[in-house]
Structures are given as structure tokens and as C-alpha cells.
Simulated scan of single mutants.
Amino acid sequence: MRATGVGSMPGDDFRGVVRFVVDELSLPFLPELPARGDGAGMVGRAVALLDGLGADLQPAGWRLTDRAGLDQRRARSLLSHDLDVLEEETQGLEGDLKIQVTGPWTLVAAMERPRGDRVLSDHGARREVAQSLASGVAAHVDEVRRRVPGASIVVQVDEPGLRAVLDGQIPTASGIGRHRRVHDPDADASLREVTTAVRAAGARPVVHSCSADVPVTLLSGAGFEAISFDLGLVRRAQYDTYAAVLEAGVDLWPGATAEDPTALRRTIDRFFGDLGFGEDAWFPRAVLSTSCGLAGESPADARAVLRRGAEATRL
């Protein structure tokens, strides 16, 4: 079992965080530090990757535009700078390296169309965003591989908003109504755009959601090779579903934290034992992560959380 983090971290010392995750974690990752501005958060990072689609930052958030706006160009410049730092701090790195990107459904639920309201409301626009994102992620994988040639790239697709999209819980621009729910075949199509592009680029697609009732069957069917989730939100009634996808070859990455690494390790052991799997079956495939990002913690607390996770995997 290895240890990693979801992706977001506090503060603005990007180089220091990169150095920390490379030194401390068995699965290091390219961090996101949203405190540095809108272009550094999960949505801003995804906007920076869009291929052929313009966007700019408005009072209500990111909005699609005819051409790249100043804020999108700044987000791209910041990402390029971060990759420079990553390259410098990972000299000689071999093994897996994780990068994160906002998934297509969380992205269209967060972004607006040129004339307002969410991209989610427009079938054509959301399909275009998914295709643009998939192309941009593939190019991003190629760039990271060029800069860190010894790494095997893992792409974590963040979909914290997927459950709300499926349940029709995303509010309209007025805040009065809700957008229509998206059915599983439509959700699968956009997710598959991304997983197919990631695989074609030679990387491994995994997905993370810190919401309750993660649609694990949908996600495994869309081509993700691992599912990262908040273990504290998994209900006993869902255990059979988690066991089925694990048995089908999809790895499970439980997210959990505790003040004591021993207690944390016992929680993970108990979960997989309750699924009906012995340690030999799950231990080599599991990755321990945090439940969600750590941007809301202090820098010292965030690092302590990750260290405890790393220690739990070594017990």
C-alpha cells in the first residue's frame, strides 16, 4: 500500500510543497495551491488545459469565451511555471507520479456559457468541453513525461460534483431551480472521452470523489482503473458494490485521516476485511489518501496529515 494526497495544499510555497511530497510520499503528486489565485485552483487548472476553447474569469466564476482571456492566459503561465519547478525538484525520480485535473462533469457544472448559466445546461457545449479537456489532458501528460522522463504518469480526474449532476442538484443561475439530472449513459460518454485520451497518452486514469454515494459502478465502467473516495462516507450497504469493482480489477484508494497512524491503518485493514479480501489481495493495489484536499488546513497541519498517512502504510 502506498500513500498520496488528493492534490490541493495550503499556502503559496509551491516549491516547498513539491519537495515535501516527493520526499515523504510513496506516490508523489503535482500539487495545487489555490491560495495563489483562481488560476491555481482545481477549476482554474482545468481551464488552463482546455484545448481550443477560450475562457475568462467573471464575477460569477469561469466563463467560456470566443478566445483565451487574460485570466486563462495567466492560468496557463502559472501551470508552465509549476512544471518548471516540478522538473527541477524531481531530477532522477522513477516510478509513479500523479497529476490531477477537474473532471468534465464537475467542470461544466462550475463554468458558465458565454450568455450565462452553467455549461451543464447545454448538451453541445458540455460535449465540446469534455472533448477539449480530454485533448488538453493528453497534451499535459506528454509535457509532464518530457519533463520527468523516469515517471509513470497517473492522472487523477477529480469529480466532486458528479453525484450532484447525476441527482439533478446543480442550481440554475437564478438559484431558484435545478438543472435536469444527467443520466448514466450521458455521464459515461464524457468520462470515457477523458479516460480514453489518458490511456492513449500512456497514462493511467483514476478518479476521485469526496462526495457521498460515489457511483462506483458508473466510474469503473467508464474506464477508470482506480477509484479514490472518502472512506468515512461509505455506507455498509455499499460494501458489495465496492467489493465487486475491486474483484473486477478496479483498485480502491480509500481516503481517511486519524491522529494516530496505527488507528488509521486499522481502519483501512478493517474496511478491506469487511469487503471479504485478505491482505494479499488488496495491499499491493491500495493507495491511502486523504478524504479531500487539504487547502483549508495550515501548512504544518497538512504536512502532518500526509506524514501520518505515509507512516500508516509502512506499519
Score class of each variant (00 low, 15 high):
residue 38 D to F: 04
residue 208 H to D: 01
residue 107 L to W: 01
residue 283 F to C: 13
residue 53 L to M: 13
residue 85 V to M: 03
residue 49 L to M: 12
residue 39 G to M: 06
residue 58 Q to P: 05
residue 56 D to A: 02
residue 261 P to A: 06
residue 22 V to T: 12
residue 253 W to H: 13
residue 105 W to I: 04
residue 57 L to K: 08
residue 69 G to T: 09
residue 83 L to F: 01
residue 93 L to I: 05
residue 153 I to Y: 02
residue 303 R to W: 10
residue 175 G to C: 07
residue 162 L to G: 06
residue 104 P to D: 05
residue 152 S to M: 04
residue 207 V to G: 04
residue 213 D to E: 12
residue 307 R to S: 15
residue 225 E to M: 13
residue 305 V to H: 12
residue 12 D to S: 13
residue 96 D to Q: 15
residue 147 R to Y: 00
residue 70 L to P: 11
residue 231 L to H: 03
residue 284 P to R: 12
residue 305 V to I: 15
residue 269 D to N: 10
residue 197 A to S: 14
residue 194 V to G: 07
residue 313 T to K: 11
residue 252 L to M: 05
residue 112 E to D: 14
residue 142 D to C: 06
residue 257 T to I: 08
residue 313 T to H: 07
residue 177 G to Q: 01
residue 93 L to Q: 10
residue 87 E to N: 08
residue 198 V to T: 11
residue 241 T to H: 03
residue 23 D to W: 01
residue 270 R to Y: 06
residue 309 G to T: 04
residue 171 P to C: 11
residue 309 G to N: 12
residue 18 V to F: 04
residue 194 V to C: 09
residue 247 E to N: 12
residue 107 L to Y: 02
residue 35 A to W: 13
residue 240 D to E: 14
residue 72 Q to F: 02
residue 255 G to R: 10
residue 141 V to S: 06
residue 100 Q to E: 09
residue 160 P to E: 09
residue 278 G to A: 09
residue 103 G to D: 08
residue 80 S to W: 00
residue 168 G to L: 01
residue 227 I to R: 05
residue 33 L to K: 08
residue 215 P to L: 03
residue 29 F to Q: 02
residue 144 V to C: 02
residue 60 A to D: 15
residue 73 R to K: 14
residue 279 E to M: 10
residue 245 V to T: 14
residue 174 S to H: 08
residue 139 A to Y: 04
